[in-house]
Amino acid sequence: MINLQSPFVQGSSSVSTIMLLVLLTLLPGLFLYIHFFGLGILLNVLIATITAIFAEFIILKIRKLPAKIFLTDYTAVVTAWLLALSIPSIAPWWITVLGTLFAIVVAKHFYGGIGSNLFNPAMIGYAILLISFPAVMTKWQNPSHINDMGLSLSIFLGGIDNYDAIASATPLDYLKTELLQGKNVSQIMNEPIAKLTQMQWVSFGFFIGGIILLLTKVITWHLPLTYLVTLFVIASIFHLIDPNQFAPFQFHLLNGGTMLAAFFIITDPVSGPTTPNGKIFFAILIATLVYVIRVFGGYPEGIAFAVIFANICVPLIDKLSQPKVFGHE
């Protein structure tokens, strides 16, 4: 090292430990996911991880970067896990592979690799899949068919013929289509698909993981808290205005990827803002967009698009939210 300068001592945090902690805190949610929806998700996570590491390794070699150092920062694995957890667990394997490849190669390395990607790679991967394969991406494993391992496996390995046998719409999707059929919210809420408690348990798992991330100071409160509070406020207001058209807040907080997004997706440091006020604004923006897309938009879930749109605004948000320097008026 040329001209060694102070400071000569250093704290213990490293990118690797941060990313490992993120992976560890994803485990409670993952376990509950497997418990309620079967091993399909585990297969998806595994295949995404392998694809991500492989793609990262090849790209690093092409870019002539030290593979060992950049692979052991585990950022590729985190991207893979987040993407896999967002994709329906009964999606065929090539969906996961395609999404992961797109996330790592295009969204991450085409923009300059770790630290330079403008957009959240996992969300870019998800958005591409959602646009390309909308039918598969909005069907969820029906928990009542959880023991039908053979069927799941055959779907995973490529056959989508028997898809509808074990799949059902996600609660968000269901709400949307049923509202179009003329039903009102309270009717829909009483139906079993909308009351998917298994899904709410998984959300709870991610919530627990998120709390651990907060306690270990891997993330700050700004993003998750603001995000959840904003979603709560907006959903409550609309529900108050017309309870027949708009679902109550708990439906929005516990369904879809809300919890996963609050603690793990919108907290991606690279593509997010850096200032405290910027983080608050960023979270409000995403929460608002998520609600708008879910309720008024064409897609049942809007997190990916909301995050990508907010990512575009980050440089401006950062510039406008610079905190006051010590002693400056």
Binding site: S14, I18, I69, I114, G115, P269, T274
Partner: peptide
């Protein structure tokens, strides 16, 4: 330890 790119963790 090796110097890695900034991940903007703030």
């Amino acid at each position: 330890k090796p110097v890695l790119p900034c991940i903007r963790c703030a």
